[in-house]
Each structure stands twice: as C-alpha cells, then as structure tokens.
Amino acid sequence: TYYTVKSGDTLNKIAAQYGVSVANLRSWNGISGDLIFVGQKLIVKKG
C-alpha cells in the first residue's frame, strides 16, 4: 500500500493510522529521521 503524505502528517500519525511502528515505516521507506514531505509517497505494509 502507498500513502501520500498530506500537510500536517507525521510519521507517528501515519504509523498509528495503519497500526504499524514508526521504525517499520522508516525501514520500508529508507528514512533515517522524522523528515517527510507533502506529496511524498510512503510504502505502508498493513500491521
């Protein structure tokens, strides 16, 4: 599943929405910090 980042989104918010961990979101998307951008597509695997 792909999720497109919207204004106001955070990794924590997206992780909670999908029932996954922030660590997994980072791993699946090659993100090291907490910086995400509006319009960015993130890979999300269902929890």
Rank of each mutant, 00 (worst) to 15 (best):
T1K: 10
Y2V: 10
Y2T: 10
Y2P: 05
Y3D: 02
T4S: 07
T4E: 13
K6H: 09
K6V: 13
K6Y: 05
S7V: 14
S7Y: 13
S7L: 13
G8Y: 05
G8L: 05
G8A: 06
D9A: 02
D9G: 01
D9I: 01
T10F: 04
L11R: 00
L11I: 10
N12C: 06
I14G: 00
I14Y: 01
I14W: 00
A15R: 02
A15L: 02
A15I: 02
A15V: 03
A15E: 03
A16L: 14
A16D: 13
Q17T: 12
Q17M: 12
Q17N: 10
Q17C: 09
Q17Y: 12
Y18A: 08
Y18V: 10
Y18L: 12
Y18T: 08
V20F: 03
V20K: 03
S21V: 05
V22W: 02
A23L: 09
A23W: 06
A23T: 12
A23S: 12
N24P: 02
R26L: 11
S27Q: 12
S27V: 11
S27H: 15
W28G: 02
W28F: 05
W28E: 04
N29E: 00
N29V: 01
N29M: 01
G30E: 12
I31F: 08
S32N: 14
G33H: 09
G33N: 10
D34K: 06
D34R: 06
D34L: 06
L35K: 12
L35T: 11
L35R: 11
I36P: 05
I36L: 11
I36C: 04
I36T: 04
F37D: 10
F37I: 12
F37R: 09
V38W: 05
V38M: 08
V38Q: 08
V38Y: 06
G39P: 01
G39V: 01
K41I: 15
K41N: 11
L42Y: 02
L42C: 02
L42M: 09
I43H: 07
I43Y: 08
V44W: 03
V44P: 01
K45T: 13
K45R: 12
K46G: 15
K46F: 14
G47Y: 13
